[in-house]
Design a binder for these strands. Structure first.
Lengths: 347, 347
DNA sequence: CTGAAAGCGCTTACAG
DNA sequence: CTGAAAGCGCTTACAG
């Protein structure tokens, strides 16, 4: 049963290989009767097209590539990852496409991977995660003439098709939630400055706070738990912040722990808002208010755009649903009387 | 520069395509002088072998497959995932192999994927994660004559090569740590019973507790945070457990939260030991004692075995380092006087 | 040491 | 509607 080819099907049915190919691919050139017979025999023989042969004939590999850079960018995205990939697969699978995954230590290696994939014709297109400011990958895939979809804001895609969500609106909702609770001094524990979405969120954060007459402080981190904890305590102790917005769930959990460890109560002393709303937000005490989104739908939209683009279709940018704020126990009213607090005294 | 083929290299150097192939693959049949010239020209033209053509000629696709089942099994493995895959890639990349990833909703779909990959000749071999008791995939890859490596204990691999670590020894170390602190009644929050490693760990847990004269209770869960929280409270309230061992980090965090939410202190009332020791264990308060292992090395060992097997080598099972216990603040001395406690009164 | 040729399993113009 | 043939870009016996 192994290694069934169209040649064997052709012999069994008594027609040429070419006719078998037409029948199998639903193209004109064979009678419906012949087509039905071919399909039946192929199914009976458990035939499937040899992917290498198909790629070599047509131009397509029926494979899409995804490079994940680790550790910095990816660490924060661990919870992101499985859901997003599941979304990709929900579209790729039914189209018969595979997902080639590469995990690399740094961004330089990512560019080398894209170059190699292009030269080897391994993939029909690639997903570009976490676009950076002046991202070199954008120019690279252009030079390689490689179909690509940027997962992020159009301003970072510079002409490449992208799938994006409006983080600015979500940040604004979080800020208004906190100011609505009476918080007058807000802090944001952000990811690396070179990431495009950091810039978008920072800008929206500062603007939204200003509109509400609240102070806004941003601290940049590398997504690590240690830096998240440090930034959290610095914001609260040095900047008198009482309401915090984090750039992902893991940092929010790390920040929560740091606060509790410093003798501060959440939400009585400080309110905490996470970002992504993975299962982590449900396993803390108190549970975390979070900006949440549908990662699976996000991945599906990316795959859809990529497949259509690889098939030569003209595609336009896609905006998915705006992330929404899911309020839980980690956000509460600010203390009525602002002013010096015990913990502002140097430890 | 696009679409460079060996034909073009042959023309440029002035020899046949066959000779170019020999030179490029380091095979005898060309002079060293010719080989050097070919290599130089290939590099200059930025040539790389077309992967489809190479697969079609030889039998190899230079691709390895990994199927991840979601949600149940995979959810607990999210933190597991990126490190393990990074380990796989650290070996696959230098060998020029790609990793084809599929995320499927259930185990039936996983078998369909393996079948499809075999028929399409998409992969040279597959990684089988989370072996189950009487795992149907083991028989399937045998029938498909598909090279495979089982990530788990030899008793579940039934003849397939496997990479494993001695969980029983690690469980025993955790039990002895807890009994050494004076705990006389231990609980284990386990994953699904059908998973092979659940059986191994359950058995070691009960046996080790018995050797120390301690009581042992096991509660099976589906890896969800909700069931982990429920099992934790049931063990403590109904079974008078004071020392807990969890099957992964996420469940340990969920259990910790449930305990704190129920007014219990960790480690003063209950000690908690997590499993995997991902970053999650560092972002709780208190930080979690955990059984930890080197996931990247684990993945690298799997990839090494798979590549060697796909190349036709006879391979033997590989045992990687025994997971070790990393003691932190979540484990402490048991209350000296056992007996009824306040929280055993029905809430 | 080198060249000419067949073949891997498909797809796709091109004739009948 | 159908068949015979060329071609995708490699690898690999087989002759010289």
């Amino acid at each position: 049963m192994a290694h069934v080819t169209i040649k064997q099907i052709a012999e069994r049915v008594g027609i040429s290989k070419g006719a078998v190919s037409y029948a199998l691919n639903g193209r004109p050139g064979v009678s419906e009767q012949t087509r039905a017979r071919v399909l039946a025999v192929a199914a009976e023989m458990d035939w499937a097209p040899n992917s290498a042969a198909r790629s070599l004939s047509g131009a397509r590999s029926r494979t899409v590539g995804l490079v994940v850079t680790r550790p910095a960018e990816a660490l924060g995205a661990e919870s992101f990852f499985v859901s997003f990939v599941a979304g990709l697969e929900s579209v790729l699978g039914p189209h018969g496409h595979g997902l080639l995954l590469q995990v690399v230590p740094a961004v330089e290696a990512e560019q080398a991977t894209l170059h190699t994939w292009a030269r080897e014709r391994r993939v029909d297109g690639v997903v570009l995660l976490d676009p950076r400011v002046d991202d070199p990958r954008v120019a690279l895939v252009g030079a390689l003439r490689m179909p690509a979809v940027v997962v992020g804001h159009p301003s970072f895609a510079r002409g490449l098709p992208c799938v994006w969500k409006d983080d600015a609106v979500a940040v604004t909702a979080a800020v208004e939630h906190l100011t609505g609770l009476g918080h007058r001094c807000l802090g944001r524990v952000a990811g690396p400055a070179r990431l495009g979405h950091t810039a978008v969120r920072d800008g929206a954060f500062v603007a939204a706070a200003a509109r509400r007459g609240a102070a806004a402080r941003v601290r940049i981190t590398d997504f690590s738990a240690a830096q998240a904890a440090g930034a959290t305590l610095a914001l609260v102790r040095e900047d008198q912040v009482t309401g915090l917005l984090f750039d992902n769930d893991l940092m929010a959990v790390a920040g929560l722990s740091a606060l509790v460890g410093a003798g501060l109560a959440v939400p009585d002393d400080v309110s905490v808002v996470a970002w992504d709303d993975s299962v982590l937000c449900h396993v803390t005490h108190p549970q975390l208010t979070a900006v949440g989104h549908d990662l699976t739908a996000y991945g599906a939209a990316v795959a859809d755009l990529l497949v259509r683009q690889a098939e030569g279709e003209e595609v336009a940018d896609v905006e998915v649903a705006v992330p929404d704020l899911r309020v839980r126990a980690s956000t509460g009213h600010a203390a009525p009387a602002p002013g010096p607090r015990p913990w502002t005294v140097p430890a």
